[in-house]
Design a protein around this nucleic acid. Structure first.
Lengths: 111, 111
DNA sequence: GTATTCTACTTAAGAATCTTAGGTATAAAA
DNA sequence: TTTTATACCTAAGATTCTTAAGTAGAATAC
């Protein structure tokens, strides 16, 4: 079983923003796949978490959507808005700081 | 403001177990302080999250409690039970794997 | 050729986790 | 003597995620 215990809680939003920042335009299903690929199955987003979050980020003006027809069906492509791009740096820094803090717990400097 | 955005969600339990594993017997307030110290204020546990979680872990047989009088007041000292000690290795490994996965998102190997 | 799997989206109910905000009380410091 | 620090507690509510179900086209397997 992939990890996905509880640790993922709280980092989903950062993951989405970072993926879109790196890969440009992506659709939801693609984000799931790419995250799974990039982490060697380490992280598997559930669709029940992903899609509502995409909608929320769109509502907050972080993401733009464009629905495109692919043959007989459709996909919803997401991109970062200007406002979304402005947040990339800070959310990544927060994540990095958080990891550093966790590592100070995992490998305490013998004080 | 310390980070404590959402990223902490899900890792509190691991933090508590690791702290008790490293420092042996600790009381709740002490865990808060020590986590703050060790992370240079990076992580601040709130008491509203900590105490209920300690009670839960006690209920699950992960922690033992001993209430001790300190002059005119008391403290509740927590230790890992035998069962709790058995979990230390796996919860730490989960955390490390999670961090590795996150780092593969933050610093993707150009595939 | 049809049954299954994969792609691709959706939502709703409920569980789990945490924040906020309050409370009690002793002890130390200002 | 007022404030701050220590030390515990809980309840209400927000947020985040899981679980589970549904729709439907496209590809693969049998």
């Amino acid at each position: 079983m992939a990890l996905n215990s509880n640790l993922l809680r709280g980092s989903l939003e950062t993951i989405i923003i970072k993926m879109l920042s790196d890969h440009g335009e992506m659709y939801g299903y693609e984000i799931c796949q790419k995250v799974k690929d990039q982490t060697n199955e380490g992280i598997s987003l559930t669709e029940g978490a992903l899609y509502p979050l995409l909608h929320k980020l769109e509502g907050k003006g972080i993401l733009d959507v464009e629905t495109r027809s692919i043959g007989n069906r459709y996909r919803k492509y997401y991109t970062l808005t200007k406002s979304g791009k402005k947040e990339v740096k800070s959310v990544i820094k927060e994540m990095e700081d958080y990891i550093k803090s966790i590592e100070l717990i995992l490998n305490p400097k013998i004080a």
